[in-house]
Each structure stands twice: as structure tokens, then as C-alpha cells.
Design a protein around this nucleic acid. Structure first.
Lengths: 193, 193
DNA sequence: GCAGAACCGGACCATCAGTCCGATTGCCTT
DNA sequence: AAGGCAATCGGACTGATGGTCCGGTTCTGC
């Protein structure tokens, strides 16, 4: 009964144009010179269109991040591949953290802009919630006794945009990845009694 | 040769009024309805005065946080007390984390507003840097082999304002404190060979 | 081909960080 | 005590931005 009429062709085209223009502006201009006026102009549409599609600045960046993260969330549930079901949870977690580090590397501006735009809603964003649930569940499988909900938030804190920017200011991404994995190893190490 | 003329009496009075008014607005109104116009009005001064004292919105919140955190940073270097020198580093770290949790509890709105205002400069803020240096040094003392710089950032991530707000939405602060301590314990647990 | 719903776009609004400068006021010297 | 000067004050002003609105246009089902 959803029966929502499919998006009109021009609407779909504009949505894609807007998303693409936003991404373009994020990489070229510094992250936070991206006003919605600019986005609209770059996409070749009116400002009203941007707001009708995405509701608000927050919504725009949420949608863009969701698009970038879609592949990741999809791979998680697939049987094959280093992220998917079928491997031991520890391997899956490490692979997922690596994938997130990769995402951060490639889309740092987007992540930073997303956080800034979402503000207090960052933790309500479906993308974040999906990541958190996945990490939490894997941790529970690995070490049932842990405070997995909290520790999953802490692992994800390693991908807080501005922190990543600071930690990798020297360009040493491999070290950053090692640091993240190192923290996970500490949290999940076998414990005495 | 510093010889900077002492602050004029009215200037000092206004600075205090502004800080107090900001804090007042933060606790009463929701955190992010605090515009500098409002602050100026509530403090009974002109807007220009706010900017001359603090330079920018960022500067205002940095100053306010610094004031609230001053006692903490002072206690750290004092020989007596649970935070100061003279106790084993592990105890000092745990006490410091508890103190930060306490600060978060009492000034959550301020912390959230500070983060939002500082944006990318959060990690350049002297208060944050002081906290980080302290945690990092203690971790190095406790377990020299660790990636202390990174892990210190991660421990401090537990006090990211919006995250704290989410984690303690049910009012269960004791559990939150236990979670933070638990993470520190995992990071600092004695390791095999 | 037609009618109306869905959509477009840019003018418009409110708000806010930050600037400026003439008027005021505290402080120091004589 | 008086005077002069520099620091300070304060509110009007600016530029930019997120968000709204509605007359006009365009797509789509019949």
C-alpha cells in the first residue's frame, strides 16, 4: 500500500545533479564553503528544488553519505568477500574498520561536512546507526562479556572527521589504520579469568 | 617588558558579565539558540564589546570552557589530592577520567556548544590539548609500549558532547562512568609477552 | 490531446557572525 | 584637582546563509 508514485523523471535527474554538484564542491572548495545557494547554482537548479528533494542541509549531507556508504552496508550482509558473513567475526570486524578507514580517506571532506551539518543528529543518522549496530554485534560475538554498545561507539569515534584530519595531517594513513586496529585489538584481547 | 596595561575596570566587569550571561543562556535556553546578540543583550552590553573581548564566537566558548576547566588543570599538578602528583599513574588517570565525566555532567551544554563553535579547531584548543597531553603522559607511564597519543584521543572521545548526551539520555550517569573506566582498563590491561 | 498533479525556480525572509566609528569613560600625569 | 588621551563602549550596518513561498511550467495517466 505504499503506492508512492515513482519519482518524476526530471525530479530524479535533478536529485542526481544536486548530489553530484555537492560532491564536486566538497572536493574542490574547502569543505565548509559549500552553501546551498552554491550547490543549487552548480547543479543548475533553483534553491527550492534542493530543499524539496532533501528537506534541509542536514538531509542533503545525510543522503550523500548514505549513497557513499551504501556499498559498504551492502557488502556486510553478503556471504562472500572479506566483510560479509562466513568469516570469523574478528576478521570481519578488522576488515570493516579497514573499510571505514578507507572511506574516511576517500571522502574526508564529506564526512566532516556531514558531521557539522548533522550536529546533534549525527547519532540518529541511519548510516551511523547501521555502522554502530554492525560493530556492536561483532564485538558481542567475539567477547560476550564486553560493554559492546559503548565500545562500538568508541571504535567509531576513531572516524570522527576532524580527528581523522588532525591525525592524518602528515599524510601517514597506514599509521592511522594501524592505530585503529591496535585499539580494537586491545579491546578484544583475551582476558584473564 | 610585557607592560600591557591592566584591563580597565569596566572592561573586566563586562567580561565577567558576558561569561556569566553566556552560561546562563546555555543552561536555560537550549544550547544552540545562544546567539551573540542574545548574549550581549543578556549581559547588558553592546555586541561590539563581546567581540572585542573574545574575538569570535569560538573565542567566547573557548574562554568559558577554559574557565570551567581551570580548576581541573590546576589540580593535576598539585602534589595532594586524587588527581595530583604523588599517586600511581593508573590511579591518577582513573581519577582524571572521573573528573572529566563529572565536568561533562555539570556542563554538558557548554561542552556541546564549545565543540560546535570550535568546529575544526577543537583539537587546537588549549584546554583540549592540556587534557590530551595529561592522558597521554599517564598512559606512557603505565604502559610504555602503547600508541599513547592516539589512544589518549580515543579516551577523550568518550567526552564528545553529543555522544555523552546520547549515552546518558536515560540519566544513568554511573553506568556511563563505568563504561569509560572499563575502556581505559581494557586499553591498559597487562599484556602477554 | 487534455487536465491536473507534481515539480520548478528564484525572489523573499529572518537570523546571525562579524565590522565600524562616533560618543563615552576610566586612568594617569601634572 | 583638573585635563587629556587612549581604551572602551554600543548599536547600526553588512554580507552571507538556511529556509520558505507561490506563480508558472512540465510531466504523466487517462
Amino acid at each position: 500500500m505504499t503506492e508512492v508514485r515513482a519519482e518524476r523523471a526530471d525530479a530524479a535527474r535533478n536529485r542526481r545533479a544536486i548530489l553530484r554538484a555537492t560532491e564536486e564542491l566538497l572536493t574542490t572548495c574547502g569543505a565548509e564553503h559549500v552553501s546551498l545557494d552554491r550547490v543549487a547554482a552548480a547543479a543548475g537548479v533553483g534553491k527550492g528544488t534542493v530543499f524539496r528533494r532533501f528537506g534541509s542541509r542536514t538531509g542533503l549531507f545525510q543522503a550523500l553519505l548514505a549513497e557513499r556508504a551504501a556499498q559498504l552496508l551492502h557488502d556486510i550482509d553478503q556471504p562472500g568477500g572479506p566483510l560479509g558473513t562466513g568469516l570469523p567475526p574478528y576478521e570481519r570486524l578488522m576488515a570493516f574498520l579497514d573499510a571505514l578507514a578507507d572511506l574516511s580517506h576517500r571522502h574526508l571532506s564529506l564526512i566532516a561536512a556531514h558531521e557539522r551539518a548533522c550536529g546533534e543528529d549525527k547519532f540518529g543518522d541511519p548510516t551511523y546507526q547501521g555502522w554502530h549496530a554492525h560493530v556492536r554485534d561483532l564485538m558481542r560475538q567475539i567477547r560476550p562479556g564486553l560493554d559492546a554498545d559503548f565500545l562500538a561507539h568508541m571504535l567509531l569515534a576513531a572516524f570522527y572527521g576532524e580527528l581523522v584530519r588532525q591525525l592524518t595531517a602528515d599524510g601517514d594513513w597506514p599509521r592511522y589504520r594501524r592505530s585503529v586496529r591496535g585499539m580494537a585489538e586491545l579491546m578484544l584481547a583475551p582476558r584473564d579469568p
